Amino acid sequence: MFGTPAGPASGRPVLVVVAHGSRDPRHAATVHALLRRVRALRPGLRVEAGFLDFNTPSVSRVLERLDAEGVRDAVALPLLLTRAFHAKSDIPAVLHEARARLPRLSVRQADVLGPSSLLTQALERRLYEAGLRPGDKGSTGVVLASAGSSDPEAIAVIAHVAREWRRTGWCAVRPAFASASLPRTEDAVRELRADGVRRVAVAPYVIAPGRLPDRIAQGAHASGADVLADVLGPAPELARLLVRRYEAARATRQVAALSA
């Protein structure tokens, strides 16, 4: 099912949001809820979802349909928080293959979502929805729990996000990972307790539910965290960030066209 109708003469590239995909049905449902919010922010923009694995339509299938409709310009936006393997390898490979088969369709890959102050605003939104108040920041330590990666750049970005977020007033912010890297969520919670932090909250730095977010939640419960926030999901800040990344990719394309 395609989103907002738009013909090839609409003047704006189609936004193709590239999601990882999951066997967990909550994943695709969350992606589509987020895209509905993006469409509400930009009613004239055509927004489509394509998945790398497990769910349909695939990214290739979305691009094929756009080409068949006469669309000539698209922005592929990775629904990813860091530049790890999928952003550096999987998505470029899929787009390269599509460009070779669909030479009339121009596709530019946008930047990943993080880091961004909009993401930390969304994290705080989820923590407040889970029961914290703004006045609790100074006495609360936060575990910034991400899915995890073996990519050093991605791990460094998570550490950077934790340091910068700590400077906004939290008692402490510790990174943690559900896979590939250490510490695990439960270990980070216990480390904060050992440091004398009175209240510990876990903020999942993930977009949609699934196996790894469930692992984060299990670690939070097992270690007795006081607060467990929901995943970022269709947070309004995340929708605004998608629009921002799309507009940046579109502007880069326009500059390149003018200088050609």
Rank of each mutant, 00 (worst) to 15 (best):
residue 35 L to C: 05
residue 53 D to Y: 03
residue 251 A to D: 14
residue 149 S to E: 05
residue 203 A to D: 08
residue 251 A to Q: 13
residue 244 R to A: 15
residue 255 V to A: 13
residue 192 L to T: 03
residue 64 E to I: 08
residue 73 D to P: 01
residue 8 P to K: 02
residue 159 A to P: 02
residue 116 S to I: 01
residue 30 T to Y: 09
residue 236 P to R: 10
residue 256 A to N: 08
residue 193 R to P: 03
residue 41 L to W: 15
residue 63 L to T: 05
residue 25 P to M: 12
residue 149 S to R: 12
residue 73 D to W: 09
residue 129 E to F: 15
residue 210 G to C: 03
residue 163 R to H: 14
residue 41 L to D: 13
residue 238 L to G: 12
residue 18 V to C: 15
residue 95 L to M: 06
residue 69 E to L: 14
residue 239 A to T: 15
residue 20 H to G: 10
residue 176 A to K: 02
residue 22 S to I: 12
residue 164 E to S: 10
residue 81 L to M: 03
residue 118 L to V: 02
residue 72 R to C: 04
residue 162 A to G: 07
residue 122 A to F: 00
residue 199 R to G: 01
residue 247 E to W: 04
residue 110 A to Y: 02
residue 12 R to G: 03
residue 257 A to S: 12
residue 85 F to R: 06
residue 152 P to A: 07
residue 229 A to E: 10
residue 62 V to S: 07
residue 91 I to D: 02
residue 222 A to V: 04
residue 96 H to D: 12
residue 45 L to Y: 11
residue 166 R to A: 12
residue 209 P to L: 14
residue 12 R to H: 13
residue 4 T to G: 11
residue 119 L to R: 01
residue 62 V to N: 12
residue 55 N to M: 08
residue 150 S to E: 10
residue 217 A to I: 04
residue 113 L to W: 03
residue 18 V to H: 10
residue 78 P to L: 10
residue 169 G to V: 07
residue 173 V to D: 02
residue 183 P to R: 10
residue 68 A to M: 07
residue 48 E to W: 12
residue 182 L to D: 12
residue 242 L to D: 03
residue 93 A to V: 07
residue 187 D to K: 13
residue 158 I to P: 00
residue 113 L to Y: 01
residue 72 R to G: 14
residue 101 R to C: 00
residue 235 A to T: 04
residue 62 V to G: 01
residue 45 L to W: 14
residue 180 A to T: 13
residue 31 V to K: 04
residue 41 L to H: 15
residue 234 P to E: 09
residue 138 G to C: 05
residue 1 M to F: 05
residue 128 Y to N: 01
residue 241 L to T: 09
residue 209 P to W: 14
residue 141 G to N: 06
residue 98 A to E: 13
residue 159 A to T: 11
residue 76 A to C: 09
residue 39 R to H: 11
residue 145 A to M: 00
residue 8 P to F: 05
residue 110 A to V: 10
residue 238 L to W: 01
residue 45 L to A: 10
residue 206 V to Y: 00
residue 44 G to F: 04
residue 116 S to T: 05
residue 217 A to K: 08
residue 170 W to P: 00
residue 82 T to P: 03
residue 87 A to C: 07
residue 243 V to S: 15
residue 259 S to M: 11
residue 49 A to T: 02
residue 126 R to Q: 13
residue 159 A to K: 13
residue 77 L to N: 11
residue 82 T to Q: 09
residue 136 D to P: 13
residue 113 L to D: 00
residue 26 R to S: 06
residue 130 A to D: 05
residue 229 A to S: 05
residue 37 R to N: 10
residue 51 F to R: 00
residue 36 R to W: 07
residue 163 R to A: 11
residue 229 A to T: 11
residue 136 D to W: 07
residue 24 D to F: 09
residue 200 V to F: 11
residue 90 D to G: 06
residue 241 L to W: 04
residue 37 R to S: 08
residue 5 P to H: 11
residue 14 V to I: 12
residue 47 V to D: 08
residue 103 P to W: 13
residue 256 A to P: 04
residue 50 G to K: 06
residue 167 R to Q: 13
residue 85 F to N: 11
residue 143 V to D: 04
